[in-house]
Design a protein around this nucleic acid. Sequence first.
DNA 1: TGTACATCAGTGAACGCGCGTTCACTGATGTAC
DNA 2: TGTACATCAGTGAACGCGCGTTCACTGATGTAC
Lengths: 199, 199
Amino acid sequence: MRRVTELREQVLASSLALIEEQGVAALSLREVARRAGVSHQAPYHHFGSKDALVAELVGRGFTRLSEMLESAERTRGTPARRLRLAARAYVDFALANPAAFRIMFRPELADLSACPSAGAAGSRAYSVLVRLVDENFRGPRVGPDRLEAITTMHWSMVHGLSTLLLDGSLGKRARPARDTEALIDRTLDLFSRTAGRQR
Amino acid sequence: MRRVTELREQVLASSLALIEEQGVAALSLREVARRAGVSHQAPYHHFGSKDALVAELVGRGFTRLSEMLESAERTRGTPARRLRLAARAYVDFALANPAAFRIMFRPELADLSACPSAGAAGSRAYSVLVRLVDENFRGPRVGPDRLEAITTMHWSMVHGLSTLLLDGSLGKRARPARDTEALIDRTLDLFSRTAGRQR
DNA sequence: TGTACATCAGTGAACGCGCGTTCACTGATGTAC
DNA sequence: TGTACATCAGTGAACGCGCGTTCACTGATGTAC
């Protein structure tokens, strides 16, 4: 028999690999068990249901994203630099964890209200962004409406960029000779230098 | 028997309704036939396969999006106003056609390379954005790299905002008392007034 | 140190289900002569 | 105007498939005494 948590971790890893290779729709407990070289009933000893497995993946995803954002937040330098690093961290998370990113924002896939810890991890990530925007833009003439709009704009921008990169839309449209990495950097640079700043 | 194209249109409409209600994974030819009150084989007289049905939905979606963007492009006023209207048109399209929007950017769901017209419709929409960015930002000191970054930034922003709105993420995070409509407007206003503009 | 027992992580068979797709058929409509 | 025929959009039965989930069982491990 395996050590206690071995199969559990293997199932989680195989699930992400499967989603990465064949998309969210291809995720099935049976295929995951097959990849782990284990009977298709074995995963049920670690996850009560397929939904519970997905919820665990979502929760871990948000936790990892939060850690990466908080790491950017702790960096020395100007507030603008911290915000810029957080934006890059968001995109980096998506590129490094495409399968997790794909399932994290699909409420119809996994009911997060049934999994409080995953919901809390999502809030934790969001609150980093709120703090960074606050630090960068709060001022006597900047009301809550404007702060909320700036937050929404930043989140939309990094989320959209991540999504388009993962779906391959940008790769198809941007000039093929250009390096994707450079495009990401130029785009985030431009955004953080201009968007929302008073002129 | 029905008139020639009646069931065809009904199948397309039911498919979108089904996706809207239960998500992309719930789309099945059999359920769609059921909703149309027709045998489950009947749709095959109009679509060779499920993939062909999805490709048709994607193609029509991009065509409609292109029309809305081009309508914004034809508006009188400043270039900035046209770009701002196009951004709003993109978000409006997503909110008005959530099911279509959800499947339009999922290459693993429908292989667009197998459906040239859908791919062309996608390029048509993208080229509107390219023209509007060009009109707004081209200048002696603005090279192609910068124009490409501005384009990417704009697309990412409206795409991310649309995605977050459809997935309900923004509704959960933003202060509940605020009107979503107002948040969209403030965000797009702020973005178009600041992002990418020389200071 | 030995023994009885509970627990835990596996196996393998079986369930019912909905799916995409194929096939043979039907009956109404349109068309050539 | 009638007739023969092709076409077209349906029906209904059937196929094989993979899925999530349940059940009864097994054998190794940990633990109380």
